[in-house]
Every structure is written in C-alpha cells, then in structure tokens.
Computed example of a mutant assay.
Amino acid sequence: MKNLLKLEEVSEMLLALLVFTQLPYAWWVLPATFLLPDLSIVGYLAGPRVGAGCYNLAHHKAVALAVGIIGWWFAQPLLLLAGTVLLFHSAFDRLLGYGLKFTTGFRDTHLGRVG
C-alpha cells in the first residue's frame, strides 16, 4: 500500500509538471518557487493551532486544485502557476512522508509522526 501511495504522489507531481510546461514561464520558475509554500510555517510563531492551520492551508491539495482551476477559468496564468506549485510541492512533501499537521505539534501529521 505504501508504494501505491508513493506512486500516486509521483503521478500528481508529473501532472503538475505537465501543466507547468503549458504555462508561459521559464523552466527555472518552478524550482525557484518550489519552497514558497513552506513559508507558511511562520504561522507557528503564533502557536501550534495557528501554525498548523497556516501550514495545512498552504499544503492542502484541494486548495492547490481550486487555485489552479480558478486561474484556468479566468485565464490568469499567475493563479494557475500558484496552483501548480502548490500541487507539486504538496505531492513532493507527501512522497517524503510529510503530511498535514495536527495541532498537537509540528511533527504530528496525518501520515504519522515525522522524525
């Protein structure tokens, strides 16, 4: 089952990469923006509840898809880029075992304890 879930994450990364190739941005934009969703950990400065909420919002795949679809629907390449980066980043995180956070602590995720 674990390998099947990893294959799913790789498939989502490839989908995001495919979408990115259709956008009007240079190749280096994806790696340059790849870590931007991790800026959401700044929310932890306000405590674990706010931190988990900020982190989960920036790493939730439904948010990534919604942002991307809105960008596509309204022909806004920047929003489509944002959704693509969010999906690519979130799938990569899940591939490495980093899941959505619980309010009990940064290391407690829906995929199990990290570290």
Rank of each mutant, 00 (worst) to 15 (best):
F74P: 10
F92N: 06
L18I: 08
R107V: 09
L95Y: 06
V85Y: 11
F92M: 04
I69Y: 06
F102L: 13
A64G: 04
G68N: 03
I70M: 09
F34Q: 07
A58Y: 00
A75D: 15
M13I: 07
E9V: 01
P77G: 12
H110G: 14
A82N: 08
L80V: 10
G115Q: 07
G71W: 05
M1A: 15
T33S: 13
L5Q: 15
W28R: 12
L5Y: 12
C54Q: 04
I69E: 06
L80D: 09
L15F: 04
F92L: 05
Y44L: 10
C54L: 08
W27G: 13
Y98F: 04
A58M: 02
L14Y: 05
L95D: 05
T103K: 12
F88L: 08
G112Q: 13
A91I: 00
L5V: 15
W73R: 10
D38G: 01
H59F: 01
S40N: 01
Q22E: 06
P31L: 12
T109E: 07
L81M: 12
S40F: 00
F74G: 14
F20A: 06
P77W: 09
P37F: 00
L5E: 14
F88V: 05
E9G: 00
T103G: 10
D108R: 12
L39K: 03
K101A: 06
L96F: 04
L111R: 11
H89I: 02
W28H: 15
L36S: 10
T104G: 13
D38H: 02
Y55S: 07
K101Q: 05
Y44C: 11
A62P: 04
R107E: 13
V29F: 11
L23H: 06
L95Q: 01
F102D: 13
W72F: 03
L35W: 02
T103D: 10
F34C: 09
M13R: 03
T21Y: 15
S40H: 00
G71S: 06
A91Y: 05
V67E: 05
L39F: 09
I41P: 01
V19R: 02
V67A: 02
V42K: 04
S11C: 02
D93I: 02
F34E: 08
F102G: 13
S40I: 03
R107A: 11
A66G: 02
G83R: 03
T33G: 10
L86Q: 00
L81R: 07
V67M: 07
L35Q: 02
E8Q: 08
L30P: 11
L96I: 02
D93Y: 03
E8S: 07
D108V: 15
H110W: 08
P31W: 14
G83V: 02
P37G: 04
A46P: 07
A52Q: 08
K2A: 14
G43Q: 09
A64H: 04
S40G: 01
L30V: 12
P77A: 11
L5I: 13
